[in-house]
Every structure is written in C-alpha cells, then in structure tokens.
Design a binder for these strands. Structure first.
Lengths: 113, 113
DNA sequence: GCAGATGTACGATAAACGTCGTACAATCGA
DNA sequence: TCGATTGTACGACGTTTATCGTACATCTGC
C-alpha cells in the first residue's frame, strides 16, 4: 500500500474530489454499483497507484474518463497528475474513516462473486 | 427478527426475486444507492416485517411500489402478501451468505452518515 | 519542432431512472 | 353489497446514465 492510504487525518482533496466528511454513502454505493467501476476499484485495491490505461478495461478511453470521474467525484479514488498519465489510488483511509469496513466488505464481495 | 432471516439454507424465492446464488453485487449496490431505498432498508433492519405504507416514505404510493420492486428484484427484500398489505422483510440470511458483512456494514454506514 | 502516448472535452444517442397521476385490483369491515 | 384501505399497472415526464467517436490538450523523447 502507498504511504498515503492509512493516514487517519483528513487531507485537502484535489479539485473535484469531496472532502472526507462530505463523502456521501449513496454516491459511493452508486459509484460502486457499475461493473466496470467495480473492476477499476478491484484493480486499485493492491494499494498501488495505477494509470487509467494500465487497468485494461473493456471500454473506450472516453468511457474510462467518465468512470474515473464518477469514482473521483464520489470520493472513492484520488487522481494525481504525472506526466501524460493520471495516477489513480483508492481513498482507503478516508473511506475507512467515514464508512468503516465498507470498502473492504465490497471488495471481498466483488472478489468472491 | 422473524424466524426466516437467519436460515442458512437457500429457499425458493417468490416470483420476481433472484435465488440466493443469483444475487448480483452490482444490483444490490445499485438498489442501496438511492436515499429512499436506503431509508426503506433501514426501516426493515429491525428484522420485523413492515408493510409498504408503514414506513412513512417521502414519495407517493406508486413511487413506493417502484422502489420496493427494485429492492425485490435485486434480492435485497422479500415481499409476502397478507390481506391488502404486502409485508416486506430483508433477506438478511441470503445476503449474509452471498456477501458476508455487506448489509450490516451498509446499515451501519447509513446510520452514522 | 514533431511525432507518439495518455487522457480530457464535448456532442450524440439510446437506455434506464425517479417521480408522478390516474385507473384498477384485491381484501376487509360494516 | 358498499365503502375504505392497500398496493399495483400503466403511461408520461424530465433527468441521468453508459457508451461511443472525434477533436483537443499536455507531456515525453527524438
């Protein structure tokens, strides 16, 4: 896991991301309710930053952009710019603080289902 | 809780309900991603059967019917006919068997959020 | 500067969604 | 039987969604 994932203090989120305290449950559940986005979250669950293209998703680039935006605006992921890439990571710490156990439970459910 | 909720054997679902093994994670998350439906699930979380009207929802009757159908077709609730009422209950046992911890975690998140 | 790589922006499109109103069906009590 | 209660069916409506293609922006390496 990256060193930013288990911090317990809320940090200032990037533009377009909700703050930790403003993450809404219904938005998170909606973000996780799409199979492609569930696949993205599963791909990010190793705690390593992944670029959008490195996840080998079954949709086109522009649809990818759409799904990453939904996840970002729901507060599920963080996007960092590096070169021509956008490095994505799960906001595990923020989600764990706001909705304890939720992300892990969903990831386990996605893995076994 | 009613006596049907913690059975570990899958039972034949009513028409329109998926069987235990066919409950899909994305459908469950989508069903739970609407505030009204989250309120319904919260209202049913005492384990008691509730009629549709007894939950005092902020929408009209026909919208209620719609939300209960979404929950039923996702496998989240069971509906039983009794007189002029439809008694609703959570499929806690089936959900726990299929996606362990998911329902409890979401309900706890909904309660604190 | 130029070409390639990586995403985003924008518009289009078809499907699904949440909401409502009205009409209807089923049941119960008087 | 008649009226009240409870919920469903159906159609309408505006919004949102998931998807794509094309065009564009940004960065890297030559």
């Amino acid at each position: 896991m990256s060193e930013t994932q288990f911090v317990t203090e809320a940090r200032a989120p990037a533009a377009g991301e909700p703050e930790r305290g403003e993450i809404e449950l219904s938005a998170v559940l909606h973000a996780l309710s799409d199979p492609v986005r569930l696949q993205i979250v599963g791909g990010l669950s190793d705690g390593v930053e992944h670029s959008c293209g490195s996840l080998d998703l079954p949709v086109t680039k522009s649809t990818c952009t759409h799904h990453f935006r939904v996840l970002r605006e729901a507060g599920v992921i963080h996007q960092r710019h590096e070169g021509t890439s956008r490095l994505n990571s799960l906001r595990s710490g923020d989600l764990e603080a706001r909705f304890p156990g939720l992300l892990d439970t969903v990831l386990r459910a996605a893995g076994s289902g």
